[in-house]
C-alpha cells in the first residue's frame, strides 16, 4: 500500500502539469486578492448583494471575504490537478502498467486519492498565501485594516487552504467517475464556473429550496472556509466548516466509488 502511495505521488510530481497549474493558481489568486481588496477598501465602497440592497461591510468581513476567495474562485485548479492525475492514465493508456504494478484496484483508487493530498496542501497553502499577501498589500495601500492581527482571520485562512486540499481529492474521485479527460475538463469548467453559481443563486431565491443549495460542492467548499464572497453577497447560507468538509469529502468518496464500480470494474483492454 505504501509502495503504491509513493508511486502515485511520484507520478504527479514527475510531469509538468502540477507546477504549470500551480503558477496559474498563484498568479490568478494574487490578482483576485489584490483586485477585490482594492474594490472593498475604496472610500464609500459598498457591495451590492444578490437582492439588490447594499451589503454593509466591516473591515473584518472585507478581509475574510478577500482571503477566502480561493475557495470561491480558485478551487478549480487543485480540482484539475487531482482530475488530471487520473484521466492522464486513461489518456496515455498508462493504466495497464499501473494495474500490473498494483493489481488490487481498491488499493489503486485509495492510493490515488491519498497521494493527491500533499499536492492539495501545496495548492491550498500557496494559493491562499498568494491571495492573502496580495490582498493584505492592497488593504495597506488603501490604508485599511488587514485583519491579520486577528487570530480568527487566520483560522479562516487555514480552513481555506484545507478546502483547496479537499478539492484536489474531489478531482481524483471525479477522474475515476469520468475518465475521459476532455469530457471531464469541460464538465469541471462548466459546472464550477456556470452551473453551480447559477444553481446557488436560483435555489437561494426560493425559501423551500435554499437549504439544498448548501449541499452543492462549491457551497460545501466555501463552508469549510467559513464566510465567503457568495454568502457575503447574500447568495445563500452555508453549512458549518466541519459539515462542509464532510460534504465535500463525501463527494470525493462517492465519485471514487462510482468510478471503482464502473470504470474500474471493466476489463482493461
Amino acid at each position: 500500500m505504501k509502495d503504491s502511495l509513493v508511486s502515485e505521488y511520484r507520478k504527479i510530481v514527475t510531469t509538468r502539469t502540477w507546477w504549470v497549474l500551480l503558477i496559474v493558481m498563484v498568479g490568478y489568486m494574487a490578482f483576485m486578492g489584490a483586485a477585490m481588496a482594492f474594490a472593498f477598501s475604496f472610500d464609500g465602497a459598498e457591495v451590492t448583494g444578490a437582492s439588490g440592497e447594499a451589503v454593509p461591510m466591516d473591515t473584518t468581513t472585507a478581509a475574510t471575504t478577500v482571503y477566502t476567495l480561493p475557495s470561491t474562485f480558485g478551487y478549480a485548479l487543485p480540482l484539475l490537478v487531482g482530475l488530471l492525475s487520473v484521466t492522464s492514465e486513461f489518456r496515455h493508456r498508462t493504466l495497464t502498467p499501473t494495474l500490473l504494478a498494483q493489481p488490487d484496484r481498491n488499493r489503486f483508487v485509495v492510493s490515488k486519492l491519498v497521494a493527491s493530498i500533499p499536492m492539495g496542501v501545496l495548492y491550498g497553502v500557496l494559493g491562499t498565501l498568494a491571495t492573502v499577501g496580495a490582498g493584505a498589500l492592497a488593504f495597506v495601500v488603501n490604508d485599511t485594516a488587514t485583519g491579520l492581527d486577528d487570530g480568527a482571520v487566520w483560522g479562516v485562512i487555514a480552513r481555506t487552504a484545507l478546502a483547496l486540499t479537499v478539492w484536489c481529492v474531489v478531482g481524483v474521485g471525479l477522474g475515476f467517475a469520468m475518465p475521459n479527460q476532455v469530457v471531464a475538463i469541460v464538465v469541471v469548467l462548466a459546472f464550477t464556473q456556470f452551473v453551480e453559481p447559477i444553481a446557488r443563486l436560483v435555489l437561494g431565491l426560493n425559501d423551500a429550496l435554499a437549504p439544498a443549495g448548501k449541499f452543492l460542492p462549491g457551497a460545501a467548499g466555501e463552508a469549510i472556509s467559513g464566510g465567503s464572497f457568495y454568502s457575503a453577497t447574500g447568495a445563500g447560507d452555508l453549512l458549518g466548516p466541519a459539515a462542509g468538509a464532510a460534504v465535500l469529502v463525501g463527494y470525493a468518496v462517492v465519485l471514487a466509488l462510482l468510478g471503482r464500480f464502473t470504470t474500474l470494474k471493466r476489463d482493461i483492454t
Binding site: R10, T14, A101
Partner: peptide, 12 residues
C-alpha cells in the same frame, strides 16, 4: 528515468 522511478517502489 522518472518513468522507472515511478515503478521502483512497487517493484520493491
Amino acid at each position: 528515468l522518472d518513468h522507472l522511478r515511478v515503478f521502483a517502489p512497487q517493484a520493491g
